[in-house]
Amino acid sequence: MPDNAQLAQLFERQDVLDAWLASDACKTIKRLKTFELSRKVFEGNYGEWERAIVSRHTDDPKQILMDGRDRTWVEDYLVEVTRTFHNLAASAFTLVDHSRKFHAELYATDNLIPDYQQHVDDTFVNPAEPHVVKCLRNYVQHKSLPLVNASFGLQFSPTGGIINWSVELNTARLLEDFDWTAQARSFVEQSAPKLDLAALLRTYRDLVVNFQDWFASEQHRVHKGAFDQRDVVNQRLQELNPANGHAPETDVEVASATNSTEDQGSE
C-alpha cells in the first residue's frame, strides 16, 4: 500500500502528464513524430532492398563458380529483388509527397524555412537520379515490373578472387513504349545497355537522407520552444519516477499486462 508521500508523487506525476498531453508543444511533437514514420518506412524498405541484393554475395571464388553452375536459386533471388525494389520505389515518393504536404501545412504560409525550395531543387529537381527513380516508380505502378538482371564477374588474383556483382535493368526494354521525362530518358540512354539499379538507388537514398536530415534540423529550429518544454517535462517526470521519466510523444500507448488467477477455476 503506497504511503502518503508516494500517493502525492503519483498524483503530481499524473498532473504533469495531463498538462503535457493538453499542451500545444505535445501536439506539435506528435505531428513531427507522425511525419517521421514516412522516413522510417522508406529507410526500412531501403534496408530490405540492400539485404535482398547482397543475399547471394560471397567472397569465396569457389562458391561463386558453384552458383554459376547451379542456377536453381536465381528465380527466388530475382523475385525478392523485384519485390523489395517495388516497395522501395513506392515508399520513396510517399515520403516526397508527405514532405511537401507537411511543409505546406506548417511552414510555407509564414516562410518559416526560407531555404526549403532551394534544398528541394538541389535534391530532387537538378540531379537526374530522382527523375529516374520517379519514372521507375510510375513504370512499376502503371506498366509492369521491370525485368531485373543479376550479373557477377570473377577476377582471380594471387591472394584469392575479386567478385563484381551488380543488379541491372535492360535500358532498351525500359525505354520501349513508356513516357520518360527528358532528364530521366537522357540518364537511362547514357547508361545503355544496362542501368546499374543498385548504384542508382544508393545515390538516391543518400540524396533523400541528406535532405531529410536538413529538414529535421530546420523543424527542431522552428519548434525549439516545444522541444525545450518537452525536456523540462521529461526532467520533472524523471525526478518523480526514474524508471518511467519520458513524456509521451505519440498516440501509441504501451500497456503492461498482468496475469490474474482470480477468475481461473480448476478442473
Rank of each mutant, 00 (worst) to 15 (best):
A108P: 01
M1I: 12
P130R: 02
E129R: 06
W180D: 01
F178H: 01
Y116M: 03
N244K: 08
A128V: 08
R230E: 06
A25R: 01
H119E: 09
P193W: 09
D213H: 08
V148I: 14
E189M: 12
V16Q: 02
P61M: 05
A5E: 15
L200K: 02
R236G: 02
P248Y: 02
L174Q: 01
M1T: 08
I53S: 03
K27P: 00
S144A: 15
K33S: 12
R13A: 05
L147I: 09
L95D: 02
L106G: 05
V140K: 07
D231S: 11
G245P: 00
P248L: 06
H142M: 05
L154G: 07
R31F: 07
Q155E: 15
A19F: 10
L78K: 04
Q118E: 13
F124R: 00
H86E: 12
R205D: 04
A247M: 11
L240Q: 00
T171Y: 00
N87C: 09
Q63W: 11
R39L: 15
W73P: 00
A108S: 10
L106H: 14
D18P: 04
E262M: 11
D67Y: 13
G153I: 03
A128K: 08
Q141G: 04
V188T: 06
Q238H: 14
D263F: 15
D15V: 04
Q190M: 10
Q229R: 04
D18G: 07
K224I: 06
E249R: 03
K101N: 07
R56D: 08
A108H: 09
D231C: 02
R236A: 06
R221E: 12
H131A: 15
H103S: 04
R69W: 07
D76A: 14
Y204E: 03
H131C: 10
E12A: 13
E48T: 07
D196S: 11
V188H: 01
T159V: 08
N259S: 13
P193M: 11
V16S: 05
Y77T: 05
Y46G: 01
D97N: 05
P146Q: 06
F102E: 03
T261D: 15
I64F: 07
K33R: 09
T181Y: 01
A255N: 07
A226V: 02
E129L: 10
A192L: 10
A226P: 00
A128Y: 00
S157V: 13
L112E: 03
Q229F: 05
A198Q: 14
R51S: 09
A90W: 01
Q183V: 04
V167Q: 12
V96E: 07
S191W: 09
E239G: 02
D18V: 08
L10V: 10
A184P: 00
S191H: 03
E218N: 11
R202T: 12
T28R: 10
V232W: 05
S55T: 09
Q264M: 13
V79T: 06
W180Q: 01
G245Y: 00
D177W: 00
T181N: 02
L175A: 03
L21C: 11
N126A: 12
V252H: 05
E176G: 05
Q6V: 06
T181Q: 08
